[in-house]
Design a binder for these strands. Structure first.
Lengths: 139, 139
DNA sequence: GTCGATGCAAAATGTTTGCAAGACC
DNA sequence: GGTCTTGCAAACATTTTGCATCGAC
């Protein structure tokens, strides 16, 4: 019924991994709270042992169900591009709000040019912008 | 004699902070190893207490002597733009090499366009690219 | 029933704090 | 000499591990 859940369970099945209650609950929490942190998950899912939460997060990162992003001065966890469109983050240094923005059209060109200039092959990139959001910049 | 040291000591003086041996050694280590990690500093500077290293790193970040960057899956510490030109990082996922690249000319425009579109004011940004370096992509 | 996943407990690692002693200006 | 800085020790937080038990398939 839920398309995100279908993708998620499909990934587990494809890798011959069990669909357990704990794994479902952790996935659901990340979906609801994304982006969130490990400690938030530990605090919210008190019925699940922390060791399980750490192990599951590692697993999800390996399976590319989620990814780590760097916002402000902390890591957060969010669903991978398999579940939502490729985007980046603006972080308001005053109110700590996070605004997602779509991949800019010209970023691809920019990275291609860099790849040529520096002879590397890009497989992944992150653009993180900090500053003041609309409300905070007016004050 | 050393221009980086002059800038560094100038910042401490301007803020009425002592220029201690520990602070000099920690600054020197970061300069040599940049980008480096807290644990590397703790292991290298065995004569300095870890508490001092943590406190000094916090201080340097507040003073904008250094900044935290996010490479691969870890934080690293490197000298701020006061000591070297504004740049970003390419990280080779195979050999773990880090290649610095200068701020691309068109990135500024790209961020200005985003600022208009999303009504935020950017004060800082990071572009991190992962992939394969010249050598590793050939294999 | 089998094998992988979880919980528990403990250890390892990383970070912060209070306070007395020491170093800088 | 006064004040800021450091070291030490302990506390606190975060993450990892081994192993016995439990649950998914």
């Amino acid at each position: 019924m839920n398309p995100l859940n279908d993708i998620f369970e499909g990934i587990l099945k494809k890798n011959h991994l069990s669909i357990t209650n704990q794994r479902k609950q952790i996935f659901d929490s990340i979906t609801k709270l994304s982006p969130t942190s490990t400690s938030t998950l530990i605090n919210d899912l008190t019925q699940i042992d922390r060791a399980t939460i750490y192990r599951t997060i590692d697993l999800y990162i390996k399976l590319k169900v989620i990814k780590k992003i760097y916002i402000g001065f902390k890591y957060k966890l969010e669903l991978s591009d398999l579940f939502s469109s490729h985007h980046h983050h603006f972080y308001c240094i005053k109110c700590h709000q996070i605004i997602d923005f779509d991949e800019p059209d010209d970023l691809d060109n920019l990275i291609n040019n860099l790849s040529l200039k520096y002879s590397f092959k890009s497989t992944e990139h992150r653009l993180e912008i900090n500053g003041l959001c609309q409300k905070c910049k007016e004050v």
